[in-house]
Design a binder for these strands. Structure first.
Lengths: 165, 165
DNA sequence: CAAAACTTTCAATAAGTTTTGAAAGTACAC
DNA sequence: GTGTACTTTCAAAACTTATTGAAAGTTTTG
């Protein structure tokens, strides 16, 4: 397999995968492209490579920068902005985990905490509701702590954890 | 907060949350409704409660059954089918993890393994590509093992792990 | 300062996804 | 077998989300 093919395959698949976990195709593909390219790329180059519009590149490079996994780079003597991706995979994983925690866990905790305030009568329905939602809250809190720990710990914590299991 | 309100809040929010992690609103809301209801419910009751069509209920109860978190229940003397949700939260988490692993991790491993077959020339591009994709593969393999372990272990493994950290 | 080189915005459009509801299918009761 | 009580399917419609591209904005250069 040639490098060109392998890169194309990787970028294309990253786009599909991205969609399956809530990241749009363009955003995922831009990220994949930057991840495997040696040099930082301009908007023009990304447009050309992925065959997408200027506006699309602009919106999604911004989103990637908001996530903190892509940066702008300026080259002296050139007005164009160049984009490059964070290439340390553990750092990338850390950021993705932080974002997913923000999107998935935090709103869940908010809701579960809120509905704990249901008034305590003796009905079967109330008992059941409290039981289910508080177990869910308990579990979610634990998952949250685990993710927090991962995203705060040093680079090798995760690998050491895996070894221990 | 009254039980009715709390349930409505929970169901509504579950729908929103679901969408943010790739489960459609109806599927998430049906699940939430079954999760907090004492009795198994019929298609009619779900339609009524969530104000959605028969077809929608049918498609999504089926999807939930495919995931293994909702079951059909037949009551003797009644032809209607009743639906009820798995209420053990750890069991639920286990199933969700299995599904996410299937949807998110497995296709990623497939792609990463495939592109490892890039031909080894000495170019900077090839070196870079191999480095990034093999690190990604390594990390993904480890995450995969962790999830597998979680979904195979006994009910308390996760809680014990959290305690140890 | 004005023109050039670029980036950003946003309304319109396209693409993708979910939902509906009527029609077709199935199984039970008599 | 026929009627009835249900479940399932699926094409069309509604809704949601992503993408385009032209116009507006910004910064640099001479």
């Amino acid at each position: 397999m040639k490098l060109q093919e392998a890169q194309a395959e990787f970028i294309k698949s990253w786009g599909v995968l991205g969609s399956s976990w809530g990241i749009n195709k363009a955003m995922a593909q831009i990220h994949a492209l930057l991840l495997v390219s040696t040099e930082a790329l301009t908007t023009e180059e990304i447009m050309e490579e992925l065959q997408i519009s200027r506006g699309n590149v602009n919106m999604n490079t911004r989103a990637l920068m908001d996530w903190g996994i892509v940066e702008k780079e300026l080259k002296i003597g050139q007005r164009k902005e160049f984009f490059k991706a964070e290439k340390d995979i553990l750092e990338l994983a850390r950021v993705v985990m932080i974002e997913r925690r923000k999107r998935e866990i935090e709103p869940m905790l908010k809701v579960l905490n809120k509905v704990q305030a249901v008034s305590s009568d003796k009905s079967q329905g109330t008992k059941e509701f409290k039981k289910v939602t508080s177990e869910l809250l308990d579990f979610t809190n634990k998952a949250n702590k685990l993710m927090e720990k991962f995203s705060r710990s040093d680079k090798n914590w995760f690998y050491k954890l895996i070894l221990r299991l």
